[in-house]
Design a protein around this nucleic acid. Structure first.
Lengths: 194, 194, 194, 194
DNA sequence: GATGAATGAGCGTTCATTCAT
DNA sequence: TATGAATGAACGCTCATTCAT
């Protein structure tokens, strides 16, 4: 088996294992078992260490998310539309790759406690990126005058909470949830009509 | 030292340890070290197991939160006022007991991965309780027509995200953050004025 | 079993294991096996880590050496006599505790490669202490004019080489070897009679 | 790259790695990294095993030492002069090839612990060769009556100790050290003038 | 002549927990 | 009420080596 195929296989097993058991319990042994590898040695062979594997998981999830969400967000002509696209496409991404999302949330909730710098240039800055976009929308006169950081953190927190809900109830109507969430933040960000 | 005093001492050490190192790294050994106990045996003696200790941490944090937030929420005469009081008092509780809040978030993010049923009858139902209150507010004609579960999950997610922001930046103006968050959810829940 | 007795048992097993297999191969597993412990966990329980165990070995060997050699060296009234006593008593110590000596040599040859600071205030300074004593002997007019550091390093090197010879040939006449070595350094240090 | 050039490259990397990290820590992985090889497989390809590589290191160091020291020792017309030449040229070799010397000392201190018979027909017999030369010097009436084995072991031990001193303090004056050592053993071996 | 892939055994260490006083 | 001693399982990681091209 080629190195890349083997790496992809291990990353896939890691995603599923983290999603099911949580970051702390996703040991090399469990991942190797799921990937049907003869020993954990194969993981150490293909990845420099645990953080290297986690980083690969994060990278894959981010690439997937960008493939899924990126085009739809960039197609928006206003920040209001972009916000709507961000929320809805994020929810749909959540439906298509629920394990990737669960794994990502777990990693970012826990990996920070260790020396891991998994978020460098990545999702740790998701709030920062959103903050910037909200600020631009305000400068353009689209949004009302709120604290962009609070709005950004709340949006990310709301979406992550949606992921948790989805995990507890897989039958949840993701599109309807996305529509509700989009409306929530449309009302919270629009210029007051009164 | 009395049994209750000893328990309280251990719980306090557990709260601080989880807040600082994260749930996964908060081992009995680390907690015992912080509490200046000679061995972890004392923890096992006073608590049936790790989950029992975690449950005690959760119970204490919830009791503290209820002491802090309960009176102010119950003093509200409308659901709109109650929502405002919930958000603001939660933020202030966050400022007064930051370690308890950090520990709680960590526990609920991770303890679920294990067999723990820490949330039974507790905060796992925080979303359920909020859902119920939002539904009542809608029935009373105070709130617009949204999915109460989505709103409840988003509110909890937004507040937890605030805790994460506070952890990263201790100098954050908690009152201002609370005011922003309260306004966000006021706009998101009110009957459309347009 | 008391903690101290257990510690002593483990240290003894460590000494014999290092003497037989060498520092690098003296793993916790091998030491536990020799001490007939149920698992290596018992070693980790009584010692903070591998270096802590090694330090205990070094401490014991040094204490034993001081018990054995110290009185005889301190009984000497001149540095010339002290040198003679140092060499002969060191050789006898070598005969009585050959495994301790082998272990010590191995530890000091190898532990330095790692982060270990096993020699702090200990044998790493053996050469320094000898250097000082040689310098005093010169100031007192007992010894000829040589570089004390070279003489000290050579003496330690010669004694360690004796230990290696003893390891290869256990039937070696230690007393005779000691007498030869004492004469060697007597001639090398005395004021030239010619 | 030719096989011999590749072998030489690997041996050179092994010498430097052992000198820097010590024998125990000089793994194939570290050596391959230093030689900038893509995998350890190349080492296994060119050498039958670890002992084979070590043997190659020893052979190179011995050949170098013989090139450096041999002519000067053989040029001596008496055993007394030969002893002087042995010590001084060995010290100079030490200055020219410090890594080879450090590696050799480490190998002979440690390789014996394993199954390795690295010294067969080699330096392990350095003491034997010196013993023989001292015995000849005695038979010729040049040296006093001492145990040749003790003298030989002490000489090797003293020189190895010099290597250790040099490792700790690279600024050491090697020529001066050699002169001191030569004088030490001249006094220790000469027929007593008194 | 060279190489990526794979391997089983072993490393020191940490885990929550139980035993025996 | 307290405590030191002990435990087996699991952790991530590194080892020299072999397989299959």
């Amino acid at each position: 088996m080629t190195a890349n195929a083997r790496r992809a296989q291990i990353v896939a097993a890691a995603v599923d294992t983290i999603a099911e058991l949580g970051y702390a319990r996703a040991s090399f042994a469990k991942i190797a078992e799921r990937a049907e590898l003869s020993s954990t040695r194969l993981i150490s062979y293909h990845f420099k260490g645990k953080f290297d594997l986690i980083q690969a998981v994060v990278d894959e999830a981010l690439a997937l998310a960008d493939d899924y969400m990126g085009p739809r967000i960039r197609a928006a002509s206003t920040k209001t539309e972009a916000l709507d696209a961000y929320i809805r496409s994020n929810m749909e991404y959540m439906r298509e790759y629920p394990n990737h999302v669960r794994a990502m949330v777990d990693i970012f909730n826990n990996a920070q406690d260790e020396g891991a710098d998994v978020s460098s240039g990545n999702l740790g800055t998701a709030v920062d990126l959103l903050t910037e976009q909200f600020a631009i929308g305000q400068r353009d006169g689209e949004f009302r005058d709120f604290d962009p950081l609070v709005m950004a953190a709340s949006l990310r927190g709301s979406i992550d909470a949606a992921a948790a809900q989805l995990a507890h109830n897989p039958d949840l109507d993701v599109d309807a949830y996305g529509a509700e969430l989009a409306e929530l933040f449309r009302l919270a960000t629009r210029k007051d009509p009164s």
